[in-house]
Simulated scan of single mutants.
Amino acid sequence: MKKFIPTGIPCLIIVVGIFYYIASVMEIPNMLNTIMNTAHDLLLNTVFYLMGICVITGALGRIFVEFGVVKLLEKILRPLMKPLFNLPGTASLGAVLTFLSDNPAIISLAKDVRFGSYFKKYQLISLTNFGTAFGMGLLVIVFMIGQGYYSAPFIGLFGAFCGCIVSTRLMQRFILKSHPHFKDESAITEIVEVEENTDNSNKTLFLRILDALLDGGRSGVDIGIAIIPGVLVISTFVMILTFGPSAEGYTGAAYQGTELLPYLAGKVNILFEWLFGFEDPHLVAFPITALGAVGAALGLVPNFAAQGWIDGNAIAVFTAIGMCWSGYLSTHTAMLDSLGFRQLTSKAIVAHTIGGLVAGVIAHWVYVLFQLL
C-alpha cells in the first residue's frame, strides 16, 4: 500500500476532479453521452478517414521507394534538407505526402525499411514533428483561399515552414540530450540488409507495382489501427474542454463541451494580440481547437467571418498554426507509439508547441511587413 499511495491518491484526485468539473457544467448524463458520441463520431469520420489516407500514401510511398524516386529526391534535395532540418533529402517525400494528406502519412514512410535506412535514429524519430508541420496543408490553404484571401494563406505557409524548422531541430536536440547514442546509431540495420538482398530481377513490372501497392497499403492499415487510441482519447478530451453547448443547451450530442480553454485564453488575450495580432479574444479558439483537430478549427472560420472578427492577418496566422499544429495532440502519441518511442511523446509535444507558436508569430509579422510594402 505504501508503494502505491504516493501516486495513486493524486491520480485519483485529479481524475475525479476533472470529471466532477465537467459534470457540474454539463450534468452527468450529458457528459457521458457527449464523451461516447464524440469518440464514436471521431472513430467513424476521423479515424477511418485517416486510415484511408495511410493506406493510399503508404502504397504511393512504397511505389516511390521501389522505383528509385526516394534516391532521386535524396540527391536533389540534400543541399536544402540538411542545413535547414538536419534531415536527409529523402525526408522531403514525407513533407509532400503529409501536405497532400495528413500527419500519419509520414509514419507510413518511416516504417518502410528502405526509406528509414537513410536516417540516423534521432532523425527518424524527429520525422513525427517534421511531417506534422505540413499535415493537411493543401486542404488548409485551399479552404482559406475559398474564404476570399489569396496572399495571406501563402504567408501562413511560410510561417509553417519556419515553425517546422524550429520544431524539428528542437526535437532532435531533446532526443540527443536524453539519448546521445542515437546520434551515430542507424535507424534501420539488419532488416535493411534482408530487403536489399531481395532479388526483383525475375519479377515483371506489373508484379513489382502490384507488390509495392499491396505491401505499402498493408502497412497503412497497421498505422491506421495504431492511431485509434490517441485520436479517440486525446482529441475527445481536448474538444470537450474547447467547444460549448448547442443552441438548445447541453443535449449529450457530440462536440459539446465546457469552453474552459477559450475562457482561460481570453484572460491573457493581450499576449495573443501582441504575438499574433488578434484583435478579438474569440480568435484564440482557432489555435486551441487546432491542437486537437485542424479540420474542426477550420469549421470556426466561416462563423468568425460572419461576425467580422477576422482579417488577412488572422487568416495568415490561422494557416500557419493550423498547418504546423494540425491536431498534433491527437496524433503525436500514436505516431511515436507506432515507431516504438512512446516515452519521447512529451518532448515531441513541447517542441511542436514551440514550433507552432513561432509559426504564428512569424506569419503575423511577415503579414505586417507585407502590408507596409
Rank of each mutant, 00 (worst) to 15 (best):
T7S: 10
P10S: 08
I14Q: 00
F19T: 14
Y21K: 04
V25I: 11
N30K: 04
N45G: 15
N45I: 15
G52Q: 02
I53Y: 09
V55E: 05
I63L: 09
F64V: 02
V69P: 07
L77I: 06
L87D: 03
P88A: 00
L93W: 11
T98S: 02
D102F: 02
P104N: 11
I107E: 06
L109M: 06
R114D: 04
Y118T: 03
F119D: 00
K120S: 10
K120L: 09
K120Q: 12
K121W: 05
S126Y: 04
T128S: 02
A133L: 04
I141G: 02
F143E: 14
G146K: 02
G148D: 15
S151L: 13
A152H: 01
G156R: 09
F158A: 10
H181Q: 15
H181C: 14
T189W: 14
E190R: 00
V192N: 14
V192F: 13
E196L: 12
K203Q: 01
T204S: 12
R208I: 03
G216A: 07
G217Y: 06
G217T: 00
I227V: 08
V233E: 07
F237M: 00
I240C: 15
L241T: 06
T242W: 09
P245G: 00
S246F: 13
E248Q: 02
Y250R: 07
A253C: 05
A253N: 13
Y255V: 10
A265I: 07
E273R: 14
W274G: 12
F276E: 11
F278C: 08
P281S: 04
G292D: 00
L298Y: 00
P302S: 08
G312N: 07
G312H: 06
N313Y: 02
T319W: 04
T319K: 10
W325E: 10
Y328N: 05
S330A: 08
L336W: 13
S338H: 15
L339Y: 05
A348Q: 11
A351H: 04
G355A: 06
Y367S: 05
